[in-house]
Amino acid sequence: MHELHWGLPVILYLFLGGLGAGAGAVSASVLLRSGGGDRPGSGFDIARWGALIAPFPVIVGTGMIVFELGSFQAGNWFRFVNLFKVINLSPMSIGTWLLSLFILVSLAYAYTFFMKDPRPGDARHSLRKMLAWAMVPLGVGVALYTGILLGALPARPFWNSPILALLFLVSALSTGVAAILLARAIFREATHHQEVARSTYLMTSSDLLLIAFEIAVVFLFIMYAHLTIGNTEAAVAVILGGRLTSLFWLGFVALGLAIPAAIELKYVIPTLLYQKQYVMPRSIEIAVCTLVLIGGFMLRYIVVVAGQITGPVGI
């Protein structure tokens, strides 16, 4: 057994970081798509939820990783500031700065929604819009970066693929959407608002799209990895017929992708094809979002573990 140098803190960090970044990016793009959210059906509500969510998972995730630092474990509590004393081309260095920036911007962005009655065109409107422009690339950047962090290592053939960053990005967006919907489903009043249904429909169908895309990326990932020879092929064996196979197929592909996709499909199709009124019971909504989040976590878990229990073949 190879050693797991990175454990739960890093897994949570990758998951939460992706989720927050995804939520932030989705929020900002929803806002921007509707020119700042002042048109009807603009999903201002969605944008607000996303904005309020975004910074916190990222902060918590980043906080988690401090616990994984050897220096912290050895009692040098604040050694991590060394990260901010240099900038170099290490993905971790770039990521550190990106994350910091994201946290600052997303906090400010959240602040623009944090008022008594936030509305399109309110006092913080222009600041909000400006920050939203920054939020999209930053969110995508943070989401991508978590994949690049792992993907940069030839020593870890399971990770060492550009597709990984893409997979993490799509998953980040998908979990971001799920987080927004979940938050809204939990906290909104039970009234069935036309407006809400419309935006939920839009969000759910984009989530469906994202899941479909994710499935495609996973397929590419496995196919390329499997069709190649040597290190990578041997490494993906761990999910194709190794220690993580059932977790991968049941925990991630089935639970995190296929089942939520199927459910979403069931509710989206009538609206999409027959222009029926979109209704998804709140309980189902919560269940689907939870599944997507679980799937997102599973993905990080499996990838982080698989990368570390496999290695280059030969000596």
Binding site: E68, G70, F80
Partner: peptide, 15 residues
């Protein structure tokens, strides 16, 4: 200077 992030531990192809 090292913060013990273990990134290099992951990166070394020779363990």
């Amino acid at each position: 200077v090292c913060i013990g992030c273990k990134y290099c531990v992951q990166a070394c192809p020779y363990g």
